[in-house]
């Protein structure tokens, strides 16, 4: 801190300004979760201290939220997201490696298929996909929730871009040492790819964490309901319980925050530091 230049201070000020701007709506959501329902929209305009701080505090919404099956829904969301990340990383790194490293006939066709797969709007194919999954008997099951997230064209694309950036000397050296493709993948490429794998994990985690229409169709039973759907259910045709919805949103954003903070250090360790990249 003491070594920071004026320029550094200015840059930090810009970063902080953006950070505050981005977090302001979240702050409003979080404090609204602690307001009585009829105070939530009361201090919008003109601005006052009470716009950003509750002047009457209640824990009623938090209690309502956690006495509903919300804990189960949070567990389901986490479980589905983590299982998707684990399964998806295996499937997608293998595919990306083949597309980046192995020269085989039809490579660009397969790559195009991967690209097309993430251009297809998921909501628009939800109904036929539902029929496919029902054919496998996967309604109201974790598998039905997880599977559509695993073959993720976007993740394959991201990892392929990263693998293409690794120098070809690496695999040539491996070949000379008598390594097969799998060994090159496992012993050379993967260890260099930790930051890219984390980015890939982020894509798949967010895909599942944000998923709404699909979980609603395939797994509406309380045992399998995910958090985004559980939160939406605090609004019905005749009343919307904003306090509880905001409380739910607060917790739903806190969990990824904790995970992100835990992974913080990996974002900053780069391959470049080890000199592994061309």
């Amino acid at each position: 801190m003491r070594n920071m230049s004026a320029r550094g201070a200015l840059q930090l000020a810009v970063i902080a300004a953006f950070g505050l701007l981005f977090v302001l709506p979240l702050w409003w959501v979080s404090i609204s979760a602690f307001r009585p329902e009829d105070d939530i929209f009361r201090y919008l305009n003109p601005l006052s201290l009470w716009t950003f701080f509750p002047n009457r505090v209640t824990f009623e919404h938090i209690v309502t939220l956690w006495t509903s099956p919300f804990a189960r829904a949070i567990f389901n969301s986490l479980f589905v997201a983590i299982a998707t990340v684990a399964g998806g990383l295996v499937v997608c790194t293998l595919a990306a490696f083949a597309l980046a490293v192995i020269e085989f006939p039809g490579r660009s066709l397969v790559f195009t298929i991967m690209i097309v797969s993430f251009l297809i709007p998921f909501d628009a194919i939800a109904v036929p996909l539902y029929n496919v999954m029902r054919g496998f008997g996967l309604q109201n099951s974790y598998l039905g929730l997880i599977l559509p997230g695993i073959g993720n064209g976007l993740t394959v694309f991201l990892l392929r871009q990263f693998f293409l950036g690794l120098p070809s000397d690496l695999r040539e050296a491996g070949m000379i040492d008598g390594m097969g493709y799998f060994q090159i993948f496992w012993r050379i490429y993967l260890p260099l790819s930790v930051p890219a794998l984390i980015s890939a994990g982020l894509i798949m985690f967010i895909f599942q964490w944000q998923a709404y229409l699909w979980p609603l169709l395939i797994a509406p039973a309380t045992e399998y309901k995910v958090a985004a759907v559980a939160i939406a259910q605090f609004s019905s045709a005749y009343d919307v319980n904003f306090g509880v919805i905001f409380a739910g949103a607060m917790f739903v954003s806190l969990i990824p925050m904790v995970i992100l903070v835990a992974f913080q250090q990996y974002f900053t360790t780069s391959v470049a530091a080890t000199g592994g990249k061309e």
Partner: peptide, 14 residues
Amino acid sequence: RTLILLPVAIPQSV
């Protein structure tokens, strides 16, 4: 950075 990334974690409906 974490704060700026957070909005993507909230359900879009909220």
